[in-house]
Nucleic acid binder design. Structure first.
Lengths: 170, 170
DNA sequence: CCGTTATAGTTACATATGAAACCATTTGCA
DNA sequence: TGCAAATGGTTTCATATGTAACTATAACGG
């Protein structure tokens, strides 16, 4: 059968664009809020990650752990997990790499030998002090696309949408 | 050396909370916009995915492909990728599973035999028609946490933050 | 025509991630 | 005490994802 006749209706190369079947009420992805959120979020996170991933051989999870340990000394892995919204497996793995790379020190907690006592090392601080400003700069770039009023609303809205468990006051 | 004396300063079990080193200007994750965006986005997406993942053995990427094919007949894999903001490898994999499961039909485009011509099958439509309302319901639940004014701002803000490439008008 | 380059899509490999099982230690309590 | 249940962390395994390499077809240029 040579030259199979066009599969079906289409003009053979022009985009179909047949907004098919109103009776099915198809979901319009590009207006769907969760979808748009995920696009924006992933784009932003990726842009930031690109700044340090290769340069420091540092994953996103590792960066989050560094950032938390930069603020709080001697946390346990569990506390790090709480503050990063990562699960304990992810934290365990990030810590394994960070400790191995000499960026975080891990000691055993006196009084409860299950717990770790985590701290940034010199090397850890050095990386933090380079990455944090880059991250802030990216955040400013993002906000620069909004006017002051929009920025304020965005902050409030995110607060309201933040899931309950994410306690900022731990 | 029995009974190693407490590793360092802490009271041995109370959370340290030593807001360490102002001279390092550590980044406050919970106020950092990209971080908050990612928490909200992931939480929402996960909630929706939980509705259908197990029940239909359908991944997020597969669902997105279904949603797009529900609106446009006969797209190529490339066009699906454009409309879902997924890369072509992810689309290829999602399609492999969808076609294998009999949810999407794949034909060769007459006139360009590299292209696929993709369509939902009956089974594909059936799933779409079950999942789409659940997704919409989740979106409503999310929006219900905001008042009308906030909802309007969120829409506008996301539009402005949407990366350029994401053309809604293709 | 024929070789080069571009495009659609798949495959392979390496890495990331999540769920559950697991080990060690501690806590609660009979 | 002493033993069951809880907690901190790690390991294992199965799956997901990204990058680059690859195949097939098509478009372009002489």
């Amino acid at each position: 059968m040579p030259a199979k006749p066009q599969p079906a209706g289409q003009p053979a190369d022009q985009a179909p664009l047949k907004q098919s079947s109103p009776e099915h009420a198809p979901l319009e992805l590009e207006r769907f809020l969760p979808y748009r959120l995920s696009i924006v979020s992933n784009t932003v996170s990726q842009a930031i990650a690109d700044d340090y991933q290769r340069r420091f051989d540092l994953g996103v999870t590792e960066w989050r752990v560094l950032a938390v340990l930069a603020r709080f000394d001697g946390l346990s892995a569990r506390e790090v997990a709480d503050r990063t919204a990562m699960d304990k497996v992810a934290v365990s793995r990030a810590l394994a790499r960070l400790v191995h790379a000499g960026r975080v020190s891990r000691a055993v907690h006196g009084g409860d030998r299950r717990r770790s006592v985590l701290n940034l090392t010199e090397a850890g601080w050095a990386i933090h002090d380079e990455v944090a400003p880059m991250a802030r700069r990216r955040e400013r770039e993002l906000l620069a696309r909004l006017d002051a009023e929009e920025q304020a609303w965005l902050g409030r809205i995110l607060d309201k949408l933040m899931p309950a468990g994410q306690d900022t006051s731990l």
